[in-house]
Design a binder for these strands. Structure first.
Lengths: 210, 210
DNA sequence: GATATATCGATAAAGGAATATCGATATTCC
DNA sequence: GGAATATCGATATTCCTTTATCGATATATC
C-alpha cells in the first residue's frame, strides 16, 4: 500500500459509498470512467486514486466492484471498529451520538461526557453520558483513541488537553477554536465557518452578476 | 479586492474568529507573526492571505485589529445577513436550527422542512418546521438563496432538485451523497466520512509504530 | 487468428498553493 | 539625526496535486 495524499484519502470514502450503492444489483465490474461520471471527477483522477489502494483493474474490464470495496474498507480501516467518545452533550453532541451512519465508517461512539449536572447521568440512544471527570478513567480502561469535541469554543482547549492526557490520539473538533496538541495527536477540524465562507462568497458573486 | 483561492477563503473565518477574540483587551494592533503562531500557520501565509482582503499593514506596526476585522467581515459578507432553510428536521437538522453561533457568520436559518407528518407543523427554537411541499413557496417569497440538506442520502438529490427549482443558489450538503446541480449553483459538501478517513488513517499509522 | 477497441498504468506536463528570499519602510534607540 | 530593528509586500522558488499523453493489454469482432 502506497502513500496517499490527504486529498486522495478524503476521496476514498466517496468511492466506497458509491461502489457499495452499486454492488447490489447490476454488473460485477465497473470502470474508472463510470465512477468519474457518477461522482463528478475525472477518470484519470479516479484511476490514480484507486491505483494507490488496490492492486488494479484490467484493460477492457475495469475493476471488480467487490474487490475494490474490500480494498477500500481495508485501507480505510473500516473493518476494525474504532471506539470513540464525545465531549459536549449539547444538541450537536447528541445528534452525533444518535447518528446511525457512523458504523458504516467503523466508528462506534461508546459514551459522551459533559460538565453539566443536568445531562451527566442521563443517556442518549442507549449511550451513557458521564461527568467529564470520568473521561480519563473510561478512555484508559476501554483503550479509546478517538475523541470528538462538540463543546463551546471556550472549553475546547481544556477538553483537548484532557483527551490527550487520557491517551486519545485523534481528535475530531467541531468547536470553532484552534487547539494545540502534541505532534503525535491529530486534530481534524470540522470547520463549519469555512464552509459558510465558501457558500457566502459564491452567493455574493452570483448576485453581483445579475 | 482580489481573487482569493478556496484555501485562503477557508482560512479567513479562522483569522476573523481569532482577531475578534483578541480585540477586547490588549493592544490595538497585531503582527502576521503573532497570528501565525496562535493559529499554527506560517507568517508568510498569513501575510499573503491578509494582503488579499485588506489594504495592508505597516512595517514595524503590523495590522490594526479593528480594521482587519472590518475588512474580513466585509469580504466574507457577514455584514449582510444570509437567510437559509434546512431540509431534513431530524436530530442534525434540529441541532443546526438551534445553534446560536451561525449569526456570527451572517447565517440566519428561517425555517426547516420535512416530509414526515410527525415534525411538520412543529417548531424548534421558535423556528417553524413545514412540510416539504411548501419549500418553493417560502423560498420564493422570502428570496432565500441558501439551502441546507440534513436528510438521508437517498433523498438528497430529490431535495437538491427542489431547492434549485426554488431559486436556491448555494447548497450546504450534510447528506453522504453526491448531488448534481446546474453550474450556477454551488454545492458545499460537509463530508464527515472524509474527516473520519483522515482520523482513522492517522490512528492506524500511529498504532502501527508502537 | 488478426484487427479493432476499451480500458488500464506509467510517465510527463501543467497548474496552484505554500514557502523562501529580499528590498522597502516605519518606528525605536542612542 | 542616524543606525538598528521589526515588519511588511513583491517576486521567485519549491512542492504538491491535477490533468494530459501514450504505450500496453485483455476482450470482442470478424
Amino acid at each position: 500500500m502506497n502513500y496517499v495524499s490527504r486529498q486522495t484519502l478524503e476521496r476514498l470514502p466517496v468511492y466506497l459509498r458509491f461502489l457499495k450503492s452499486q454492488s447490489k444489483s447490476g454488473p460485477l465490474n465497473t470502470s474508472a470512467k463510470a465512477i468519474a461520471e457518477a461522482l463528478g471527477l475525472t477518470e484519470i483522477q479516479v484511476r490514480k486514486d484507486l491505483a494507490a489502494i488496490s492492486d488494479g483493474g484490467k484493460p477492457r474490464i475495469g475493476y471488480i466492484i467487490d474487490d475494490l470495496v474490500s480494498d477500500l474498507e481495508e485501507f480505510l480501516g473500516y473493518k476494525d471498529v474504532n471506539d470513540a467518545v464525545i465531549v459536549g452533550a449539547g444538541k450537536l453532541g447528541k445528534a452525533l451520538m444518535s447518528y446511525k451512519g457512523f458504523s458504516d465508517y467503523g466508528l462506534n461512539i461508546v459514551a459522551a461526557f459533559d460538565t453539566s449536572d443536568d445531562v451527566a447521568g442521563t443517556e442518549e440512544e442507549g449511550k451513557p453520558i458521564f461527568h467529564l471527570d470520568k473521561l480519563e478513567d473510561l478512555c484508559r480502561r476501554m483503550n479509546i483513541r478517538i475523541g470528538i469535541i462538540t463543546a463551546p469554543a471556550e472549553s475546547a482547549q481544556y477538553i483537548a488537553d484532557k483527551m490527550v492526557k487520557s491517551g486519545i490520539l485523534a481528535i475530531w473538533n467541531f468547536a470553532p477554536a484552534h487547539i494545540e496538541v502534541p505532534q503525535t495527536v491529530l486534530v481534524k477540524n470540522e470547520n463549519m465557518a469555512a464552509s459558510l465562507a465558501v457558500l457566502s462568497k459564491h452567493l455574493s458573486e452570483q448576485l453581483m452578476n445579475t
